[in-house]
Design a protein around this nucleic acid. Sequence first.
DNA 1: TGTCTTTTTTAAAATCATTCTAATCTATTG
DNA 2: CAATAGATTAGAATGATTTTAAAAAAGACA
Lengths: 141, 141
Amino acid sequence: MDNSVRPYGQVYETLRKVGLRPTRQRLGLARLLFENGDRHVTAEQLHNEAAAANLRVSLATIYNTLNQFTESGLMRELVVEPGRSYFDTNTSDHHHFFHEDTARLQDIPSDAISVGKVPDPPAGTKVERVDIIVRIKKTTG
Amino acid sequence: MDNSVRPYGQVYETLRKVGLRPTRQRLGLARLLFENGDRHVTAEQLHNEAAAANLRVSLATIYNTLNQFTESGLMRELVVEPGRSYFDTNTSDHHHFFHEDTARLQDIPSDAISVGKVPDPPAGTKVERVDIIVRIKKTTG
DNA sequence: TGTCTTTTTTAAAATCATTCTAATCTATTG
DNA sequence: CAATAGATTAGAATGATTTTAAAAAAGACA
């Protein structure tokens, strides 16, 4: 667990694997994203985190990076609310709770929810992905 | 089926029922929305349709109206793509196919899809709504 | 290592959907 | 029909995201 020795080792490999140059910004963002469990972040949130971690990255780079990570399959984009996108570090098959009060996402493991029957997609099309969002609110107004 | 006699009769009642003044713009938009089967429109699309139907309505009013219709339960808002919202005239329990190539939505009747098991919402929260989006793409690139 | 080439990063401007503002108009009520 | 409350509008403002063009950093290689 001593990650002072090869602080960027893990994510360095991850970036190489998908063919992205391991630059200072990408390495730093990748650590924030991938070394802290499953995460759901907006660009703005990640930008703030980066600042808090003393990583100087412009907002444009945050967007570039999130989009590149998404295109290379390291993350996926979630659209739950009008106005902004969330990016999810968990790319395996699963779904989400969305807390409407706090605008937070929470994973639902795929075995905790089951889509019994899915209708056949219209002729000439194939299913790309199924997204289930369970919108929840605090009880007691 | 002669709707030249009481052209606004149906939607007039609908508006009254939810407590919205039956103005020219709201009546016109309501007709476009509710007298053409189940629909999924963006603000921009509806604006164009209105123009095509010789109904002069500003884009601000389109937004106001879609939001009011949604708040009064005549429609619901769907967020499927980053950037823009869709509004659905079908407020009953159902889900959607989203054609990624054409950016069109298509209803999935609720009995054509079944959510077998839904996990209990976290303590202190209750389920507000469950959205299922089946994203589809043309086969043969 | 230094130089060349390519890719990244960046600040700032541009874009796009949506909301706000404040002024004008329209429905409703008496 | 006048008064007033509510609606519509053009245009400005906002906020998230993308683009632009220039400067900086990375990779290749002599």
